[in-house]
């Protein structure tokens, strides 16, 4: 009996006339549940801006835009606003955020650290965090555009491309990238969370490398790709094995290639520059398999022959 009378205290409501219920009386766990089911980052920010009680409740949840284990976040696209002449200086401080579902764009003018505005390049993004490379200081750092938090990484002379595996605030997080010293030599640079230095693995080959344009890492595999669409895989648990995997594709036609990670799987997407047709391959231990395409009017069989 006590349960009923005592437990309800926090959300208790003195009856009588029908009046507007004060929403700030909702229990913290209900509010938290609502927050974790908001899939879009800006809605999470709005939620936090409603009142002090809602904001306090939200402190128990992961920061806005970060992964929540319960639910998939809706993806967003962040890009710079182009400017001309006098606008250029001003536009440097502007970023636009696109919500692909509603096709709305949002604008953000403040809040960007100086080095992000002054020439740092975003080299990777995941879990709501961006990985920036700032050439003047030759430093890599993480930046969370929604909380404003930054995490600095140890000095590295040069790195391109780079990628990270795991949440930047997790102990398992690993940043990995390539430092090319010679056409026949690359150094794979690897830095775990808390490391003061980078670990380097030198790879020499008969063929000439890169320049590499894309890199992703997932499940202890680091995958990188050159502009020809040649894909290389490095296992950073075993710290060995560079394999070269070519997608079964005819490269006379496809020119633009992307690497992406989704649901812990690595995909390679190839775009036909002339027709815009897209071919997506899933990376498997045995090789790459075609997982989807929109080859309008083209015969897909033509593209599944050997590379």
């Amino acid at each position: 009996m006590e349960v009923v009378q005592g437990g309800g205290e926090e959300c208790c409501y003195s009856g009588g006339e029908r009046e507007q219920r004060p929403w700030s009386d909702l229990c913290t766990d209900v509010l938290l549940r609502i927050l974790t089911f908001l899939p879009f980052v800006l809605d999470q920010l709005s939620f936090r801006g409603v009142c002090t009680f809602w904001r306090a409740a939200a402190r128990q949840a992961p920061a806005a835009g970060e992964d929540q284990p319960q639910l998939e976040q809706r993806p967003w696209l962040l890009f710079t606003a182009g400017g001309d002449g006098e606008n250029e200086e001003k536009q440097k401080k502007v970023r636009l955020l696109l919500d692909p579902k509603t096709r709305r764009t949002y604008r953000m003018e403040q809040y960007w650290p100086e080095r992000v505005v002054e020439g740092a390049v975003c080299v990777a993004s995941r879990h709501g965090w961006l990985l920036y490379h700032s050439p003047p200081q030759s430093r890599l750092f993480f930046f969370n555009p929604f909380s404003g938090a930054t995490i600095d990484l140890p000095y590295i002379e040069s790195i391109s491309p780079a990628s990270f595996d795991g949440h930047p605030t997790d102990d398992e997080c690993v940043v990995i990238g390539i430092y090319q010293t010679h056409p026949h030599e690359i150094i794979i640079c690897y830095c775990g969370r808390g490391d003061a230095y980078w670990t380097l693995a030198r790879c020499r080959t008969f063929w000439s490398w890169g320049p590499f344009t894309h890199a992703v890492s997932c499940n202890h595999l680091f995958c990188f790709m050159d502009p020809c669409g040649r894909l290389f895989v490095f296992n950073f648990l075993k710290f060995s094995t560079i394999e070269c995997r070519g997608p079964p594709l005819n490269f006379d036609s496809f020119r633009v290639a992307y690497l992406l990670v989704s649901h812990l799987r690595v995909y390679a997407a190839f775009v036909d520059v002339h027709t815009g047709a897209v071919c997506v391959f899933l990376m498997r231990p045995a090789g790459m398999i075609l997982s989807g395409s929109n080859l309008d009017g083209l015969n897909p069989l033509r593209y599944t022959t050997g590379f």
């Binding site: 507007q20 219920r21 004060p22 929403w23 700030s24 800006l42 920010l45 709005s46 936090r48 801006g49 409603v50 009142c51 002090t52 009680f53 809602w54 904001r55 806005a64 606003a81 636009l96 955020l97 096709r103 709305r104 764009t105 949002y106 604008r107 953000m108 003018e109 403040q110 809040y111 929604f146 909380s147 404003g148």
Partner: peptide, 29 residues
């Protein structure tokens, strides 16, 4: 939901700075 905005002006300003883009829809498109 008939919630009262109980932030102090300073807090409000801080929130506004933090998520300025949630307040200003972009007229870009």
């Amino acid at each position: 939901f008939n919630v009262v905005n109980d932030f102090t002006p300073e807090e409000e300003e801080e929130i506004r700075n933090q998520n300025a883009w949630a307040f200003e829809r972009d007229p870009y498109y």
